[in-house]
Nucleic acid binder design. Structure first.
Lengths: 335, 335
DNA sequence: TGCCGCAAGTTTACCGGTAACGTAGCCAAA
DNA sequence: TTTGGCTACGTTACCGGTAAACTTGCGGCA
């Protein structure tokens, strides 16, 4: 089955009549060879269909890996998909390869994945969130490679960080709801609170509302993943327990849209009877008949900045350790 | 910076007082050592914080790679996100690592990515679609590793295939629209037709409508990526060119929901004045006030089956070369 | 004329595993 | 007593690159 590629440096060297070291230098674009040699080597390499063996290169030389790992909490989230896209485009352009992982919002899964990743001796790694297991931090310190923590901001990164404050997102929306005259405000969470960052947003809302003198009226913390269904049934459950709410803050836009669907199915007028606020800024939110009030997050930019920061560090260029990206509260028509 | 992990097999061997070959055998769970030796080796490995070097293993032994590549047309599509999730879960469970790629619906980009992937000597690869460049096919034949083509079905796979017929999806929806009495049917496409599979669906619709004696009344092929905005403005454009349509088939659900938003904004009654059909089965489609008529695709299952088939082949187990997964037309309330 | 420096190479050693093969010691069957 | 097989190892060679050190030939310059 796995017959190996036909040509290696040795083969090219033999055909060209030089040493394999010279071939290596030519193919990597170094110096110490004549134009004539270069041309001949390239021709032979082309003719033999040479494909470099990065395994050997990274193994032999250390320092030479072009592999970067990225671990996100969920692969099926539209937001992380865009982060991944930003990372992938930037790294591909810069000549790196991307190994993915998914930790299901679990620090243990993250550590397990990281252990696998490190066994490939990558050039760097991008993690999501700022909460990691002690084992994870240990592994990273020993590996001595660049690390970027994305999504949530931290002032004490393991190495570098690109993100924003989820707490502030929540607080800002809480204040907004108050300014719009809402007083009986509920929240719908997801994933049993395992999503630390979703929890930070809820904490932000709670703090803002409490400070305004109108603390959270009711909260429903679902076990489900934060999707449309969960939003739909989450709002149903919340309203059955606490009728008379005049606003609800959802874990994210998908849930908010699900909630919006429920409200409309129930004949509630949005925003007159009930205001609905989401988070994340998914595209669908802005083409609904009722544009969703939400906080837009620069997903792709985060991925891009993280990737570029990582590579800059690898190249020894100066980098900013902590990059705060701006989020933007977009008042729609649902509040 | 990149200081290497402290312990390797040699270190463990020295500390334990055996040869590194014995350590290797113990750690890989082979045979040829006593229980006592096993215990001591494991203890030392644990104490030294040994992390295997898969680079060296895969390089030295060939055949020993646990790296699998997967290339999808777009990372930001919700459908492919689920495919990726299915692949990732299955492969992680089976002890493999996943390298991702994105080809932007371009065969050249796919080939470029594959070339990078192969330089890592992976155990196998999963590609999307059945149209590949000659170079891609060449690379794969020479690499001699398992290949799974997913998403679109083919009777002549390079190696294995897991998918369904996009043409049939389109044809089925076309017939459905006709059965529901629609006669002036339009279609909205995306990505300038570069998405071969979206084109196959349109071809299916066209064929079905033509056979029924009511050929496609109007078609709008956008340049954009298939998102909500594109659906919104796509329908606007289509209706301005061809007023009086009584049904529109969209490239996918996201566009259909965008189209639905436009129809409602324009005061069109759906489905009375205009029927709207999507494709893909995104979750949002079923919680809208008006449940979208669409074709549900088993995304996660495709990823899972592809990953499992790949690993089965690697293990020399018997596998089915071509697996057809079922899609399901779900009549919603928009037709 | 002799020395230096540079361009254009070559040679050697090594990265950390694994396959293949070798071997010592022991026990059981012939 | 010999032989044969088994267990539990050890030895050797090698995978395909790259860093570092070494060599060779040539032109310029004192």
């Amino acid at each position: 089955m796995t017959r190996k590629p036909k040509a290696n440096l040795e083969d090219i060297a033999r055909e060209t009549g030089v040493s394999k070291m010279t071939v290596s230098r030519v193919l990597r674009g170094g110096s110490g060879f004549s134009d004539d040699t270069r041309t001949r080597v390239l021709q032979v390499a082309e003719r033999l269909g040479y494909i470099p063996n990065r395994l050997a290169a990274a193994f032999g030389a250390d320092q030479a890996s072009t592999l970067v790992g990225i671990c996100v909490p969920r692969l099926t989230s539209g937001l992380f998909a865009h982060v991944l896209d930003g990372v992938d485009r930037a790294l591909t352009r810069l000549g790196y390869q991307v190994m993915i992982g998914c930790n299901n919002h679990s620090a243990e899964d993250e550590e397990a994945w990281l252990r696998q990743l490190i066994s490939w001796r990558p050039a760097g790694v991008i993690l999501s969130g700022r909460h990691h297991s002690p084992g994870t931090v240990d592994l990273l310190r020993n590996a001595g490679m660049p690390v970027v923590e994305i999504w949530e901001l931290t002032t004490t990164p393991i190495d570098m960080a690109v993100g924003f404050s989820h707490f502030d997102c929540g607080a800002e929306m809480g204040q907004f709801l108050i300014r719009r005259g809402r007083r009986r405000i509920g929240v719908v969470g997801a994933m049993a609170g395992q999503d630390e960052m979703g929890r930070a947003r809820r904490d932000g809302v709670e703090r803002a509302l409490a400070q305004a003198g109108h603390p959270v009226a009711a909260a429903e913390l679902l076990l489900d993943t934060p999707g449309f269904y969960a939003g739909y049934y989450g709002l149903e459950t919340l309203l059955s327990r606490a009728p008379g709410l005049d606003a609800v803050y959802f874990h994210n836009d998908e849930m908010a849209i699900g909630g919006l669907a429920y409200a409309q199915a129930r004949g509630l007028r949005v925003p007159e009877d009930l205001a609905i606020a989401g988070w994340g800024g998914m595209e669908a939110a802005s083409v609904l008949p009722l544009r969703l009030t939400t906080t837009v997050v620069p997903t792709t930019a985060i991925g891009k900045l993280a990737a570029e920061g990582l590579v800059a560090r690898l190249r020894g260029e100066p980098v900013q350790d902590v990059v705060a990206v701006p989020t933007r509260l977009v008042p729609g028509q649902t509040v």
